[in-house]
Design a protein around this nucleic acid. Sequence first.
DNA 1: AAACTATGTAACCGTATAGTTACTCATTAT
DNA 2: ATAATGAGTAACTATACGGTTACATAGTTT
Lengths: 120, 120
Amino acid sequence: MRHRSVTYSPEATFSALADPTRRAVLDLLRKGSQPAGRIAQAFPVSRPAISKHLRRLRRAHLVEQRRVGRLRVYQLNPEPLKAVDSWLERYRSFWHTRLGSLQAYVEAEYEKEQSRAKER
Amino acid sequence: MRHRSVTYSPEATFSALADPTRRAVLDLLRKGSQPAGRIAQAFPVSRPAISKHLRRLRRAHLVEQRRVGRLRVYQLNPEPLKAVDSWLERYRSFWHTRLGSLQAYVEAEYEKEQSRAKER
DNA sequence: AAACTATGTAACCGTATAGTTACTCATTAT
DNA sequence: ATAATGAGTAACTATACGGTTACATAGTTT
């Protein structure tokens, strides 16, 4: 059951990561799993607010929840972050090779094409 | 002027990337810079909608705009993605080393501490 | 079983977002 | 000069979001 082989929607992942509080929660969980209440203590917002952030993180599979007595212990799940990492892959070439200049070339090419097009 | 040494807010970057249309625009620009109109043609939504997406991408510094005649040519700027990449860095250890088991340990430790705490 | 505790949900509010159509502005073509 | 074209902005609408307080639920203590 630990390996459900889920596909993580970049949709859910990126929008979960868009909120600073949620990123801070993840950072906190890097240092170890914690129950909801203790997580909430680390933030100036109300506990229900954190509860909602945790739900969003859960739906994005960025955290997993285990019930321990009346505690709900949250644990970081880095899988969706791996997905982000591999999404970034296609852009890596852009900062590793000098592709800016190539881009400039493509642009120039396009603009030439544009002017040619005008002459039908 | 090309090197303004800007700091990219993960805030702006992640929320820009949260929208599938905007990610698609970036993917499109990977293949070369294009004017706004041509970008818009690639999508089923109205041109003003794309215009607004482009503004958001601009504010996130994920694209740059150059005016060429009456065209506005958009070019991908991978810098903020590099920032995302380095934000991810701190999580890489989580999927490279086997930290899951360590986490389990920390949890157990915490729970023990909890029970001890009860006894004042 | 009654009281307490941890956590999630409901209902509500204000603001942001993505989309639309209508309009404006600047540049190119006639 | 006038028309046409590319692109951004304005105004509006519906929905999502983050926050709040009040309430519900489940487990733990006494």
